[in-house]
Nucleic acid binder design. Structure first.
Lengths: 351, 351
DNA sequence: GTGAAAGCGCTAACAA
DNA sequence: TTGTTAGCGCTTTCAC
């Protein structure tokens, strides 16, 4: 028995209804909707009218049952699957303003196309499996993956399961997967050039975690560029990309190199922490110590003084990530590719 | 023709396959899966075996086509639909660490239940309509709504469309919708009591936007509590809950009341900005001015000194929001309800 | 260029 | 308690 049309909620207008209103068959309406050529223009018009007057909206489930596509992508934030993973709330990730920018970029590309990402977190190994299952069984056509740890097993798992996926940054181990990234070395070079141009000669750096590519390349890129400028040795304190780790790294650096006059910090959040430590030790910025950050996140302008930093085009990269994923969904055999973005120096007051 | 079982990607194992393997009918397997009682325990076991050995996973689309449920909820971040809404990226929202906590709380409740939220942003009026359409036509069973502006029309639209929805905070205008909130007045009272206990008598406040309930109640709650303590007039500078607005509000306050010795700021992000201005004007915190924030966000510990603040149990509230939404999805006639959480004073160094 | 008809995989009456 | 059957709304051969 046919369900009574509930006027209050979700429409129950079907293709059938439109077909009847237009005096054609379901198949024809379907063709018009899906933009298949071979349909008489006049009929097309009639059908469009009928769609408009009936207020028809395709049923997602029915369509996806037959096409085996969901028209949805997953945005997966994935960790290493290690300990501490059973924290009640995965909110840590969001404390980095960086993540918000990723989401913004993704949404800006997807929304005009009527696609809304589904949000998944995968901290534990168990959750990696769960995410994989979800993906493999068509809860989404593909995945946009942002890893928070170098040992994240998910990229490899996705490749092995043939789930279309795009990473936000180059994976720690090389695997055949599409990713976008920023040219970390070029960014570090920009910072080095700027510090040198500002006449700094006793320069140090606070790096990110050295087991992730971003941490590693920003450090080596910076050291290489400084070497080119004639500075063979650059002291480094390793941080973890968090505010607090930047503060403690700065303390260490200051203890060992109290006379430093220039500093490159591998991200703004750590730079913000470093600024606190510098002030605590009576150093003026930029007079005593010139500081250059990395990311151009909201932390950069929340600092005092505002940070001179390397702009990481996160939003553009995230949008590109979405574009690439959709391409992979369209063309399953498409080969993995990488797109590397150029960073830019943003000069503010800290250097 | 039957599609060849592609061993590489999404399984094509159906109920039929399981039924055959277990030597029962599809219906029975379906019953076992959906936990319907009347099934012989022995058969249940056989079926479970068959499910395990075949590696069966239900097809979401097929199920949702018949149940008219998606098993999905939308997490909607919605603005007023005003100007400036066409910013390329909706990343602003994420700059407030508060939002990350909301997401964390929601996910913590939903994930164990195998539900992943779909993320939607609705800044413009056009997007409000789009979101509504999506929701009405079953892209999600309901919506978790976080409004960023008082004039957000979406809550009302959702109610009118009979889409199950839960708000993060009390709507500006009263409408019959379920929401969770924190007891802003109680929080403000906690702040007032603390400041008075610290011996402060020349107290001022930086409020949130006064057209949103949270901004309004924190202010009036604070003033009322101070009145009880014998302080009839509390100067106030209005801010916009952003870092920058807190800084400028502090400047104004200091210009008019240079002798103030106590301050309540309606959120931590503004308090962080206020701290900057205080330092800039040579005030020591807490010696010269005691500062109490609100939220206990990551900004509270990133500050120097760390902020004494009112803990807003955002994660718990968000989890409750998800619970309520699921209840509304289960019971469509369920009446709107509200759940108000108690805030707690967190004492750190700023007061 | 268009229509008829066969499913996609599942749930839910209804029978047995 | 279990099986049979009729769809859910859509796309897509295959005839016409």
């Amino acid at each position: 028995m046919r369900q009574a049309p509930s006027p209050s909620s979700g429409s129950s207008i079907t293709l059938e209804d439109v077909a009847r209103a237009a005096g054609v068959s379901r198949a024809t309406v379907s063709r018009v909707i899906n933009g298949i050529r071979n349909v008489d223009p006049a009929i097309q018009e009639t059908v469009r009218q009928a769609i408009a007057t009936t207020g028809y909206v395709p049923n997602h489930a029915a369509r996806s049952l037959v096409t085996r596509r969901t028209g949805t992508v997953a945005l997966v934030v994935s960790g290493a699957g290690g300990e501490g993973a059973d924290a009640p709330f995965p909110s840590q990730v969001f404390n980095d303003p960086f993540f918000g920018r990723v989401v913004g970029g993704i949404v800006s590309f997807l929304r005009p196309r009527g696609i809304h990402p589904i949000l998944m977190f995968a901290e534990t190994a168990e959750m990696h499996a769960q995410v994989l299952t979800h993906l493999r069984h068509g809860n989404a056509d593909g995945a946009l993956l942002v890893s928070t740890h170098a040992e994240d097993p998910l990229p490899r798992l996705l490749v092995e399961a043939h789930v279309p996926a795009v990473l936000f940054a180059r994976p720690a181990e090389p695997i055949p997967i599409t990713y976008v990234d920023v040219d970390h070395r070029a960014g570090a070079r920009l910072a080095a050039d700027h510090l040198v141009a500002r006449g700094r000669h006793r320069v140090a750096t606070i790096s990110g975690p050295l087991d992730v590519p971003a941490g590693q390349s920003r450090l080596t890129g910076f050291r290489d560029a400084m070497a080119v400028h004639g500075h063979p040795y650059i002291p480094c304190a390793e941080g973890g990309f968090t505010h607090h780790s930047g503060e403690t790294a700065m303390e260490r650096l200051l203890a060992e190199h109290p006379d430093l006059d220039g500093l490159f910090v591998a991200n703004d959040l750590m730079a913000q922490g470093a600024l606190l430590a510098l002030r605590h030790h009576g150093r003026r910025v930029p007079e005593d110590v010139a500081v250059v950050g990395f990311d151009d996140s909201s932390a950069a302008t929340a600092c005092r003084p505002p940070l001179t930093t390397i702009r990481h085009p996160v939003e553009d990269m995230a949008a590109e990530m979405a574009r690439l994923l959709l391409a992979h969904v369209e063309q399953p055999r498409r080969l993995p590719s990488s797109v590397i973005f150029d960073p830019v120096l943003v000069t503010r007051e800290s250097a």
